[in-house]
Amino acid sequence: MNSAATAASEWYRPTSLADALAIRASARGAVVAIAGCTDLMVGWNAGSRRLPSVLDLSALPELGAIEVGPDAVTIGAAVCCARIAAHPAIAGRLPMLASSARQTGSIAIQNRATLGGNIMNASPAADNPPVLLAFGARVTLASVRGSRTLDYAAFHTGYKRTLAEPDELLVSVTVPYPAPGASSHYRKVGTRRAQAISKVALAALIETTDRAEDGTRRVRDARFGFASAGPVPLTAPSLSAALRDSPLPAIDRLLVERALASDLSPIDDIRSTAAYRRQVAVNLVMAALAEASQVP
């Protein structure tokens, strides 16, 4: 059905990061970096025969490792979702990330789709970014000029725009472990139960104080990540601020509604409506808070 004659101008498959960065630098943005191809190749099919030059990141050892550290896990940008979902340390310490990786498309997609691609494709509906936002992840970018590490929360600057420069590659994502006893809650609301794009998704990480004598506890710190609730994967700074020191479980729904009204900017599109996204986002937060209040 589609062209069999697709031919990229050049096909680069470096086996070291240094080589990859050199190609990236010399091409000045004229090469497309590819990894799992699960988003990118959808465009190839419908488009022209003449593809841009390709920089294949799949053979770079520097991008292919999962390193378990004392405070964080560092995941190479070209690690696929299936490996993340199956990794024991991630399942044990960062279960939300195992969960989002397991809900990224079908198994055939998870076997190919990479964490880096999920970030760099910069879709507001991407499945793993909400979790990375809630965990306070950092991203490491590299170029021939050197490397830098940024808070992921600042990375997406607008629809399909990021802080990455044209000569940079995303190398890894570092996800710190949450504080002991923190409650984490991930829920993807997709168009169906599997193999779906999210209509709205929430990742929440809620730290609470110890239970007071009257049995109540307070929110010490709450961080959120949302998908499909605005032009980029979003945190919810107003909500996080509003919840600080609030007592659980008696959190006022109106407070959450008001905060999210300023944090989120969902739209009507072919998958859902702004009204639904807004309402369900509030419901998901309330459910996450209810769950946090029940942590022993």
């Binding site: 168009t191 169906r192 139960r193 599997a194 193999q195 794009i197 072919i270 998958r271």
Partner: peptide, 16 residues
């Protein structure tokens, strides 16, 4: 039809 892709026209999967 604006959602004329399998990604956006949703039929049931095994999970559903």
């Amino acid at each position: 039809m604006a959602n004329n892709r399998m990604t956006n026209y949703i039929i049931p999967t095994t999970a559903d």
